[in-house]
Design a protein around this nucleic acid. Sequence first.
DNA 1: AGCCTTTGACCAGCG
DNA 2: TCGCTGGTCAAAGGC
Length: 538
Amino acid sequence: MAGTDNRRALMEDWMLPSPSPRTLMSSFLNEEFSSGPFSSIFGDNSSNKPQDGIEKTKTLVDLSVEETVQDTKAPLQLESNLFSTNQKSTSHGSLAERMAARAGFGVLKIDTSHVSSSAPIRSPVTIPPGVSPRELLESPVFLPNAIAQPSPTTGKLPFLMPNNFKSMISSVPKKVEDQSHDDCAFSFQTILRSKPPSFSTVDKGLGAFHQNQSLNDSQQELSLQVSTTATKDETEENLVKPSTCDSMLDNDHPSPADEQVESEENQNGEDASVSVIAPDEDGYNWRKYGQKQVKNSEHPRSYYKCTHPNCPVKKKVERSQEGHITEIVYKGSHSHPLPPPNRRPSVLSSHVIDLQADGSENFRSKPGHNTETSREMAPNDHFQDVHSVGLERNLSGSLTTTEIADTCVMESQEAVDVSPTVSSNEKDDRATHGTIPLTYGRDEDETESKRRWRFLPLLTLPPMPLTWQLWHQELSGNLRLLCRPQVRLTSLMMVTAGASMGRKLSKEIQTRGATINALTQAAPCASMWREPQMISSP
DNA sequence: AGCCTTTGACCAGCG
DNA sequence: TCGCTGGTCAAAGGC
C-alpha cells in the first residue's frame, strides 16, 4: 500500500480542480436524487418502532436478487453506465420497470473523456441498464430492514472496516459470467441492489439534506434514519433475508436464496440503514454455539451468541451451501455498545486495514443492522445505532442522496458529532468504533482526523481510499465487492479478474479487509480509482 | 492461552 | 407418553 505520503499526494491530486467527473456526478446525482421520490424506491418503512421493548426482532432480508452483472466486457464502463442508468432509472421507474430494463442489459458507455481529463480512465464500474444510480448507492446496506447481504463468499463480511474507515460493506450477490481476464484487468461493475422498503422518509429528507449540509447534516441524517427505519416487525425477531436483494439484482442468481443480507438496526428503527450487512459483520462479536439442519429449510442454521459478557443477544443464520446467507434472525437486545472495531475479534479485526485507524463498524452492521435487532432492542445500543454506529447508519441508511449528490462531503467531526445530544462517552464510543469517517491511519493525529474527506460522487468516486469488502467470489475469480464509504455511498462492484488474481484479492480482502489501495495495486488497470479528496476542515 | 468452530448429544416445547 | 423439532450444551479440535 502506498504510504501515507503517497496517499496524501494522490489525494491532493485528486483535489485538484478536476472536478469534471465530480461535477458531472453531482449534477447527476442531484438530479437523480432530488427529483426522484425516494419513497417509492424504498417503500414505506417509515414505521419507526421503538425498539426498546422488543426482545426479538426479525429482519427479513430478501436478497434473492442479485445484481445483474453484465458481462465483463463492459467492465470499465462504470461511469458511463451510471449515467446511462440514470436516464433509465429515473427515480420514477418502478422496481419492475427497472428490473425489466435490467433484463435488457444494454450497457451504455459513457464517454469519460470529458469526465476526467487525466488519462484515460476507464470506469471500472458498469451499471446495468435499468438500474438507477440510486440503487447503486443504496447498496444492500441501505436496505431498510436490515437487509443486509452478507458475503456469500466468506459468510462473514466484515462490515466494519476498522480502522480506516468504517466502511461497511454489504454484500451483494450477483452472478457474473465468468470471464476470466487478465489478472490485471479489473472491471468493476456496480451491483444493483434492492431498495429497502423503508426509505421513504429518507426521500423526504433528502431535500432537506441538500439544503443543509453542514453540521446539521449528521443530525438530519439521524433523524432521517430514524424515521426511515424501519421496519421492524412487531415481532421481536429480526429476520433478515437476502432474497430481496438478490431478486432485485439478479434474476439469474443460481443460488437459491441467496445471499444474505445483513441487517443493521437502529434502535430507532432505522433499519434502513440498516444496512444490510453481513450478519457476522454487524459489528458485534459472535460466537457460534450450534448448528442444525432445520426441517423446513434447505440450509443449515447456525446459532450465534454475542460474546459480550452477559449480553443475551443471539442470532440464527441460515446459509446456503454457497455460503450465502439466506436468513438471519436476531433475538434479544445488546446490553452493551458496539465493540470497538479494533477489538473485534477475528472477523472484524481481520477487516482492518493497515491504513485504517479506527474503523467504525458501521458497516459492521451487519448484524445488523446491526442488527437491527440488537440495536433496536438494546437500549444502550440506541445511540450506537443511531449515532455512533453512526457510520453504519450513515452509510446505510442515512445516506441520502443528498450526501451523494452533493459531493458527498463529510466531516469526520460531523460524523462524530452526529447529535448534540450524544454524550461524550457515546462520542468516544463512536470514535472508537470508527464511526468517524475516513480516517486513514490509526496514527493520524487529531489534526488529520479532523480534516474533511471529500468523497466524489459514486461514479467518479474513487474506490481507492475506500474500504471494500468482499461479497462474493466467483469461481472464475470475479469478485463482488461492496463498498460503503461513510458517506453512505454504498456501492457494489464487480471486479473481474483472473482466477488466480481473484483468489489473491479475495484472500487479501478476507484476511485484511482489503483497501482500495490493495485492490489498486493488484489491479493496475483500474486506473480510475482515485483516492477521495481530503480537504482541510474550515 | 484464548477464542472460535464443529458436531453429536441433550433438553424443552408442542402436537 | 411418544416422537418430532428447534434450540442449546459442551467436548474436541483448530487457529
